Simulated assay, not measured.
Amino acid sequence: MQIDTSIAAIVTGGASGLGEATARALAAKGAKVALFDLNEERGEAVAAEIGGVFCKVDVSDEASIEAGFARAREAHGQERVLVNCAGIATVGKTTKRDRETGAISHLPLAAFEKTIRINLMGTFNCMAKAAAGMITLDTVGEYGERGVIINTASVAAEDGQIGQVAYATSKAGVKGMTLPAARDLMGEGIRVNAILPGIFHTPMMDGLPEKAQVALAASVPFPKRLGRPEEYAKLACFMVETEYMNAETVRLDGAIRMPPK
C-alpha cells in the first residue's frame, strides 16, 4: 500500500520513542496521522509538528480506545494503517527468595495483569477495532487491499530474561497472535505483521545511567550500538508499502540474542 495523502494512520504510543518516530515517518510520506497516548503535552506538541491530531488514550481502557478512534476518524476519516507501539516494561521475578532474610515473595498479580492489559490486550483491542473499520473501506490495488496493521512485540518474546516474566509473556502473546490475526483478516484484504525490536534508544533507556547504556550497546553483535527509533519507523513503513509482507514477525535487533540476565 502506497503511503500518501490519501492514507489515514493511527499510531499508539505516538508521543515518544518508537511511536513518535513512526508517526513522523508516516507524516513525512504524506499520511494523515493520529497519535494515541497518555502524555497530553508531548502528544499535542508532536501532532502539531507533523500536522496530525492527538487523542488522549489509555489502551487498557476500552471506552478510552473507542473515544480515540472516534476522534481520529472524525479528523482524518477511516484509517488504513494502524501501528501499535503503546506498552510498558515491568520488572520482577516470578518468585524470589531474599538471601539475607530468607523471605519469599512473588511478582504481584496486579503488576502481571497490568502488563498484559496494556501490552497484549491493548494491542488486540486496537487491532480489532481498527480492522472493523477497515473492513468498511473500498479496496485499493490489484488484489483488493484495505488496510495494514503492525504490532510491536520484542526480542523478549523469544529471549525473555530474568525478571521479565510479565513483559516477555505479553510480548510473546503479541507475536503469537500475528499469524492467526492475519488469517482472520486475509479475506478482508487486511495484512497483519509484527516487529520485535531489540535494545533501542528510547525515553525508557534514557532513565538508565550512561555506563549501563554503553554496556548494553556493546552487547549488540553488529552494529555495536543501540537501535534508533527511526530504524523501527523505516521498517514499519516498509511493511505498510510491501504488499506481499503478511503474517511476518521480524526481529530488528543487530543480531542480539539476550542472555538470561
Rank of each mutant, 00 (worst) to 15 (best):
K29T: 02
K96Y: 13
N151E: 00
V91C: 11
S6R: 13
T5M: 11
D37P: 02
D138S: 12
K224A: 11
L120P: 01
R24Q: 10
G227E: 03
A48Y: 10
A194V: 01
T22M: 04
D138H: 08
T152N: 04
M245P: 08
G87Q: 03
V53N: 06
A168T: 06
G173D: 04
R71W: 11
L216H: 10
H76K: 10
D138V: 05
F112A: 06
M134P: 06
V240M: 07
A25M: 10
E142W: 09
P260C: 04
E145V: 06
T178R: 00
F69P: 07
G102P: 09
V33P: 06
E66T: 14
T249F: 05
G51W: 04
A233N: 04
P259H: 01
K93D: 15
R225L: 03
G77Y: 03
A48T: 15
M245I: 15
G173H: 05
A110W: 05
L35G: 03
N193C: 08
S105N: 12
E248H: 12
G187Q: 06
G30Y: 08
P203I: 12
V83A: 04
E158V: 13
S16C: 08
G92R: 13
F69G: 12
A194Y: 01
D184S: 14
A172P: 01
A21N: 06
F112V: 11
R97T: 15
G68V: 02
P259I: 01
V46F: 03
R225H: 05
L196T: 01
